[in-house]
Design a protein around this nucleic acid. Sequence first.
DNA 1: CTTCTCACA
DNA 2: TGTGAGGA
Length: 131
Amino acid sequence: MRIGELAKRTGASERSLRYYEAQGLLSPSRTPAGYRIYAESDVDVVRHVQTLLAAGLNTAFIKEVLPCMVDTGEGLAPGCPELLPHLQKERARITMSIDGLATARTLLDGVISATPPDNTEYEAWVARRTG
DNA sequence: CTTCTCACA
DNA sequence: TGTGAGGA
């Protein structure tokens, strides 16, 4: 099938499909005219890529683990045992990221609730809109 | 009409 | 990642 059909069947944009290819996640053959020809199995590959991308993994990591992933009908499962450590490492990375955002939010909360030394303008504004 | 590459107010 | 140009 050509890129248009694969896009329709997976919900991925043609743009994304070409991007996945550039990242080595897909390697469609070409017609003499240069049109990309995808295999039926690529539909699943694209779905897996979308799942992993949504799970916060980058294309480089996906490229490594994709061949070890197996479809369970429900979702994806680790096809190789030596995959778990890497997956857990990714999980840890996401946790770090969340912690960073949490402290950022706490800091911002502090700024939002802080009382300015000279609050005349601030209070005038509050008074104006609270009536 | 569909796809391709390349470039970017 | 979207979008549009310019071509096949």
